[in-house]
Every structure is written in C-alpha cells, then in structure tokens.
Amino acid sequence: MSQATENPAFASIKTAVEENPVMLFMKGTAMFPQCGFSARVVQILTHMGVPFKTANVLEDPELRDGIKQFSNWPTIPQLYVKGEFVGGCDIVTEMFQSGELQTLFDQNGIARTGA
C-alpha cells in the first residue's frame, strides 16, 4: 500500500515539499505564528533571507496528523529543503548556530536575499 492511500493528507504534503524548495509546516502563518517554536524557525529563515512557503497545520486536522506520520517526526514545526525533511525547531536552531543550515541551503542552490 502506498503512502498516498494510507493518509489523505500525504498527497498534498508530498506535492508541497516537492514544489517548494523550502517548505515549513507550522502552527499559524509566517506573519502570525501561533507557537514559539514555529516563530523561532520563521525568524531564522527570515533572518537568513531564505524564501520559504508555509502550511498552517492548525487550519487542517488531517494535515496536522498527516505531517507527523509523513515525516515520522512527532512535533511541529517541520522544515523541508528540496523535498528532504530537515527537522524541527531545535535541530533547525542548532544547524543555524553551527552554520550547517547555511551550508545546506548553499548546497541545494537556495538563493538567499539576506546576510
């Protein structure tokens, strides 16, 4: 059985991560994050000048449950770069502080408008 038939949200999640080079599944929106962890990841991406798309899991219970199963990761936010799951707030924060996140974006050809 394919993932798409297991959970109805998987198809839209797969499309979102494939069509958007940097995709963030979060609580709230980039303009109005509704949890501190989501706000932190938005802050990091914005600071780095990385263009990214978001999906608000609070608007869709199927998406909220589906993204956790899709990535096999229990928490939100979840960051994807070029279709690959990167991690949640703690991992993204650590990667930003160590310089790994910038390297990841550079290696994947993600243009940055900021510092």
Rank of each mutant, 00 (worst) to 15 (best):
A16N: 12
I44V: 15
E59I: 09
A4Q: 13
P74F: 08
T5S: 12
K14Q: 15
E18C: 06
D90E: 11
G28H: 11
T5L: 12
P74H: 05
K14C: 02
G49D: 01
K53D: 11
Q97F: 01
D65Q: 15
V22L: 02
R40H: 14
A11I: 14
H47T: 15
F70I: 10
Y80R: 10
M1G: 13
M26D: 01
V41H: 10
G99C: 07
E18S: 14
N20T: 04
T15N: 07
I76W: 11
F37L: 08
K82H: 03
K82V: 05
K53I: 01
K27C: 08
F10E: 03
S12P: 00
D106Y: 00
K27Y: 13
K68V: 00
L45M: 10
M23H: 12
T103Q: 12
V17F: 09
V50R: 02
G109V: 00
D65N: 12
C35G: 14
T103V: 09
R112N: 00
V17P: 03
P74D: 03
A55Q: 14
A16R: 04
G87P: 03
Y80Q: 05
E62R: 05
V92L: 04
V42A: 04
N108A: 02
A111D: 02
I91V: 14
L79K: 07
P33L: 10
P51F: 00
I91M: 01
Q69F: 06
P77E: 03
S38M: 08
P51K: 07
A55R: 12
Q3K: 12
L79I: 03
T29M: 11
S38L: 09
P61E: 08
I13H: 11
G49A: 07
K82S: 13
Y80S: 03
V57Y: 08
A30S: 15
F32W: 12
V22K: 02
L58W: 07
A9V: 00
A30P: 15
G36V: 04
A30D: 12
S38E: 06
L45F: 08
V42L: 05
Q3R: 13
L104C: 08
G36N: 07
M31Y: 10
L58P: 05
R112S: 00
T113A: 09
Q107F: 04
K53C: 08
N108R: 07
L45T: 09
M48Y: 10
V17L: 07
V81K: 00
V50S: 01
N7P: 01
C89R: 08
M31N: 13
I44T: 14
P51Q: 08
R112E: 00
G83V: 03
G99S: 09
T75L: 06
P21C: 02
I44Q: 14
P77K: 04
Y80E: 03
F70Q: 09
I13F: 12
M23K: 15
T46M: 10
G66I: 04
V22S: 02
A11L: 13
G66Y: 10
V50L: 05
Q102V: 04
M26H: 04
E84Y: 01
F96E: 14
M31D: 15
N108G: 01
G83M: 02
E62Y: 12
A115N: 10
F85D: 02
E62L: 12
A11S: 15
P33F: 11
N20L: 04
V92G: 04
